[in-house]
Amino acid sequence: MSNPLVDFSHELANTVEGVGNSVIAVLEGGRSGVSGTVWQPGVAVTIAHTIRGRDEVTVVLSSGEQTNATVAARDQGTDIAILKLPSDAPVAKQANDANARVGEVALAIARRGTEGLSATYGIVSAIGGPWRTFSGARVDRWLRLDLNPFPGFSGGPIVNAAGETLGIATSGPWRSAAVIPASTVSRIVDQLLKHGHAVRGYIGVGLQLVRFPEDAWQSLGISSGRGLLITAIAPGSAAEEAKLTLGDVIVSVDGKPIRSGGGLQWLLDAETVGKSITLGVVRGGQLLNISVLVREKAA
């Protein structure tokens, strides 16, 4: 009789070995090297803060070849950097992270210098909606992992049992493993390759979250009771052209009510650039609809 534990063991080791062909070592990263994941032909991603201030890094490919790679671009918002590789390496197979399930197998895979692959095993422990990084970038999904992080795993892939990359590993709070999901990595990599920086929408306002008195929000029909008070308008910005003024309170964007201080930024992603959004604005006790053309934020 075959031992299912032996089969499972072989499958895990095969997955590590297979995915490992797309995992590179970045020797200068972090304290004693980090990893990178080949995302497109000739392009690898890694975690930007681990290679801060470097234009070039030394990488070790799965073939054992040690070579220089150019740091082509980095996005401070998501902490993703892209490396241009001088020679070809197999591209990691990407998972549709929207299909990730709580309880499914997750492996963290890293390449440790010239010494080969390292891995830890765990499961997806919780899945949440989109979130914002400290620097305001949108991440499509929160994937919490029950998985042991280890030195050098940053920039390597987190893969499911099928060997598909759920995302890129980075350190989370309290010695946890965090993931930048594959969908976000792909979006940022595309923008970095096309523009050299990540694209974000911008209308040029400074905002402060405010609450309306209950009778006011009920009579105006504002469902959340909250709004964003405009405290600054950049000269020449889209907001100025749309004739927004200091003291206006934004209560909705394209009909969606404002709920939190980050409420407007949430909606100003790359896809909104060049398009008009309709703001619900309270001015002088009246609710107005004002349309604003979203521009690209200067890098």
Binding site: L5, F8, S9, H10, L12, A13, N14, T15, V16, E17, G20, L107, I109, R112, E115, G116, L117, S118, A119, T120, Y121, F150
Partner: peptide, 28 residues
């Protein structure tokens, strides 16, 4: 052994005799 191979440890953590724990090889 390859990274990813299943391994098991047995022992007496904090006096619990015959305890078992499972994991994988981290590095060849």
């Amino acid at each position: 052994l390859r990274a990813g191979d299943v391994v098991l440890a047995s022992g007496n953590p904090n006096g619990d005799s015959g305890a078992i724990t499972t994991g994988i090889v981290h590095h060849a």
